[in-house]
Simulated scan of single mutants.
Amino acid sequence: MPKYPAIAEQELVRQCKHGDLKHQELLYKQFYGYAMGIGLRYLANRDDALEVVNDAFIKVFNTIKSVDEKLPFKPWLRKVIVNTAIDRRRKNLRNLAEADLDEAAFIATPALAVSKLNANDIVTMMQLLPELNRLVFNLYEVDGYNHEEIGVMLNIAASSSRVYLGRAKERLRKMILQQEEKG
């Protein structure tokens, strides 16, 4: 049994705009799973994802007054979580050595059927990707940003974004092939 009765998304947002702590808790509980799913796509471990989710909800509660109650809340929340994850990664990216990606070759392989994989297999594979590859893959393939936008977000060249995406896809293909050989 839930602690509080289910409340419509618009009502939750409206009450959170008034600073109602009970409704902030309800909003957090209602969207926690969704937020963690996004966080885990961008971060290698659960603790980092949880930290990003909590930071994102703090941002949400601090800026929720700007939300248009007539628009769906989830897309706005997703954007806050993604941006919070990117901010965290951006801090860590400064420490990574950067290869000369502008001259790297892109190697393509034919698309593979992944019908035997389940969601956990895919999440595990994503978490095994190098940090920049995973970040660019998520931004481009999952969240729909283009390479120019990704370049601005991560402070890299758009061509570097393309190379990171290509490398991520190639690594995923290899992991899928290995999985298919096992099964």
Rank of each mutant, 00 (worst) to 15 (best):
K29P: 07
I38V: 15
R90Q: 06
L112F: 08
Q127M: 05
H18F: 11
R134Q: 14
Y42F: 15
G144L: 13
H23R: 04
G33S: 07
I58Y: 13
W76D: 05
V142S: 05
A104K: 07
E103I: 10
N45L: 02
L135S: 13
L128I: 00
K79N: 12
R90H: 12
D55S: 05
V142P: 00
D143V: 00
K59Q: 10
L139N: 08
R46G: 12
A56M: 01
T63F: 08
D48E: 13
R89Q: 09
D143N: 01
G144T: 05
D48G: 01
A44F: 08
L43M: 06
R89E: 04
I58N: 13
A35M: 04
D55P: 06
E98T: 12
Y34T: 06
L128P: 02
H23P: 05
F137D: 13
D121Q: 14
D102L: 09
Y32M: 04
V136D: 04
A56C: 05
E103Q: 15
K59I: 03
D47K: 11
N138S: 13
K22C: 08
G37K: 06
A108E: 07
L112V: 14
H18C: 10
D47G: 12
L40Q: 08
F31H: 10
L77M: 10
Y42T: 07
K22F: 01
F73T: 01
E51G: 15
A85D: 13
R46K: 15
V82S: 00
V136Q: 15
K59A: 11
D100V: 04
E141H: 10
F61I: 11
D143K: 00
G33V: 03
A119V: 07
C16I: 08
I122W: 09
R46F: 10
E103A: 08
I86H: 00
Y140T: 05
D100S: 11
D102H: 04
L26C: 13
N83G: 02
R94Q: 12
S66I: 03
I64N: 03
T63P: 03
A35W: 14
L139A: 04
A105E: 08
M126P: 02
R46Q: 14
R90G: 03
L43C: 02
N95Q: 09
K91Q: 11
Q127K: 09
N120W: 05
R134M: 13
K17F: 01
R90T: 05
Y34C: 00
D143Q: 09
L139F: 06
R94G: 14
L93A: 09
R88M: 03
N83K: 02
E25M: 06
V52Q: 10
N62W: 07
G33Y: 00
D87C: 06
T109W: 11
A104N: 02
Y140D: 07
R94K: 15
N45S: 06
E25F: 11
Q30N: 11
D121K: 11
A97L: 06
K116R: 11
P130A: 03
E25D: 12
D48Q: 04
F73N: 01
V136F: 06
M36D: 02
R134E: 07
L129T: 03
R41D: 10
F57G: 01
S115E: 07
P130Y: 05
A35I: 06
V142M: 01
